[in-house]
C-alpha cells in the first residue's frame, strides 16, 4: 500500500511562490492500477516525481509498504529507488546503448553480476515483446518499441511499484493500446502496483481500477473508475468523462426515437459493471418471443466491466415484453422504459 499524506510542493521563484501540489492525501492499494488525471499544469508530473523524490517535497509524507520514503537519507533513498520503476513520456533511453544495454543499465547500477544481467535482460526482452531487437539502438526503434524498452528497463530490478508519467502521450492510438495492454499484463502477471499519470480519459477507462482527478495541485474527485464515470460530480470530471462517452445529448436522442420508432417499446439499458452485455441481447431474443433492434449505444469497457447505455427497440406481445424486461432487470443492467405504444 502507498500512503500519501498532506504532500505539498511549493516552487519558489524570485518574485512569487507557486503551489504545484497542495496538501494532497491519497492511499493506493497494493496491486492496483491507479490513475491520476488532470489538465496541463494541474501538478500531475510534480506529484508523481514527489513519490520517488525526484522532486523534494516541501512538506508531507510518502509511505510505500510501510517504509517512509520521505524519511530516507540521500543514500538510502538512492538504494530504494532501484526498487521503484519509472517510465517517461519521452522514454529517456540512452541512445548510445543498444536495447539490451539500456535494459541492463539499472541492473549494472544495482551491482548485479554479468551472467545474471544477461539472463535477466533476455527475460525482460521476451516479456515486453522485443525479441530480435536486442542489438538495435533506440534511434532505430519506433515510439512504441522505445516505450517497451523503457518498461523493460523499469522492471529490471523487480520493483513493487511502477510510476508512469504520461507513458503513452507521445504514441499514436494503436500503439497506445498495445502499451496499455502490456501494462495490464504486467500488473496481473507480477502483481505490480502501477501509478499512472495522464490527461487522456480513455487511458483511465481502459486500464485503471481507481482514479483521482487533479486540479490546481489538489485531488478534487476520487473513486473507482466506474463510479467516477457513472456519477462524475465536479465539472472537470464531467469534461473528462465526455472525452470518452461523448456529450450527454440523451434528451435530444430520446425525442428522435419517439418520433421514428413506430411500434414496440424503446428501452434504455444502463450498463454498470456488466460483463455479459453482448450475450444479454441475444439471450433475450432467444429466450422470449421478441424482436430486439439496437438503436444507439455507447458502451466502454473498463477493468471492472462494461459501462455505458444502449437504446433498443423491443417488439412483441405485451406480456412477453414485460417478461423480457423483468429478465433483464435481474441482471445488473438497469432498464428504463422510454415509450410504449
Amino acid at each position: 500500500m502507498i500512503v500519501i499524506d498532506q504532500l505539498s510542493k511549493i516552487f519558489k521563484t524570485a518574485s512569487s511562490e507557486l503551489v504545484a501540489v497542495d496538501q494532497l492525501s491519497l492511499s493506493i492499494e497494493k496491486g492496483e492500477i491507479f490513475g491520476v488525471i488532470g489538465y496541463s499544469g494541474a501538478g500531475k508530473s510534480t506529484f508523481i516525481r514527489l513519490i520517488n523524490r525526484l522532486e523534494e517535497p516541501t512538506s508531507g509524507r510518502v509511505e510505500i509498504e510501510g517504509e517512509l520514503i520521505t524519511g530516507l537519507s540521500k543514500n538510502a533513498l538512492r538504494v530504494k529507488r532501484q526498487n521503484i520503476g519509472m517510465i517517461f513520456q519521452h522514454f529517456n533511453l540512452l541512445w548510445s546503448r543498444t536495447v539490451s544495454e539500456n535494459i541492463a543499465f539499472p541492473l549494472e547500477i544495482a551491482g548485479v553480476s554479468k551472467e545474471e544481467i544477461e539472463k535477466r535482460v533476455q527475460e525482460l526482452v521476451d516479456l515486453v515483446g522485443l525479441s530480435g531487437k536486442e542489438t538495435s539502438y533506440p534511434s532505430q526503434l519506433s515510439g512504441g518499441q522505445k516505450q517497451r524498452v523503457g518498461i523493460a528497463r523499469a522492471l529490471a530490478n523487480r520493483p513493487k511499484v511502477l510510476l508512469c508519467d504520461e507513458a503513452t502521450s507521445a504514441l499514436d492510438p494503436e500503439t497506445t493500446d498495445s502499451i496499455l495492454a502490456l501494462l495490464v499484463d504486467i500488473n496481473k502477471q507480477l502483481g505490480l502496483t502501477i501509478i499512472l499519470i495522464t490527461h487522456e480519459m480513455h487511458v483511465i477507462q481502459k486500464i485503471c481500477h481507481n482514479v483521482a482527478v487533479m486540479e490546481a495541485g489538489r485531488i478534487v474527485e476520487q473513486g473507482s473508475v466506474l463510479d467516477v464515470f457513472s456519477h462524475p460530480k465536479k465539472n472537470v470530471t464531467k469534461k473528462f468523462v465526455e472525452q470518452v462517452m461523448g456529450k450527454p445529448d440523451d434528451e435530444v436522442a430520446e425525442d428522435s426515437f419517439i418520433a421514428t420508432v413506430a411500434e414496440g417499446h424503446v428501452l434504455k439499458l444502463q450498463f454498470i459493471k456488466e460483463n455479459t452485455n453482448q450475450a444479454l441481447i441475444s439471450e433475450v431474443a432467444k429466450k422470449f418471443k421478441v424482436d430486439v433492434n439496437i438503436l444507439q449505444g455507447n458502451i466502454k469497457r473498463t477493468q471492472e466491466g462494461a459501462y455505458g447505455s444502449l437504446y433498443v427497440q423491443m417488439v412483441g406481445e405485451e406480456v412477453t415484453v414485460q417478461e423480457a424486461i423483468q429478465y433483464i432487470e435481474q441482471t445488473s443492467v438497469e432498464v428504463e422504459v422510454i415509450t410504449h405504444d
Binding site: K80, R81, Q82, M86, N92, F105, P106, I109, L163
Partner: peptide, 22 residues
C-alpha cells in the same frame, strides 16, 4: 538530455555512474 539524467537518478544511480555512464 535532462530526461536521461533524471531516468538514471530514478534508477538509483550514483553521481559517479551518472558522470561516467551517462
Amino acid at each position: 538530455d535532462g530526461g536521461v539524467i533524471e531516468a538514471a537518478k530514478a534508477m538509483g544511480a550514483k553521481t559517479r555512474t551518472i558522470i561516467f555512464k551517462v
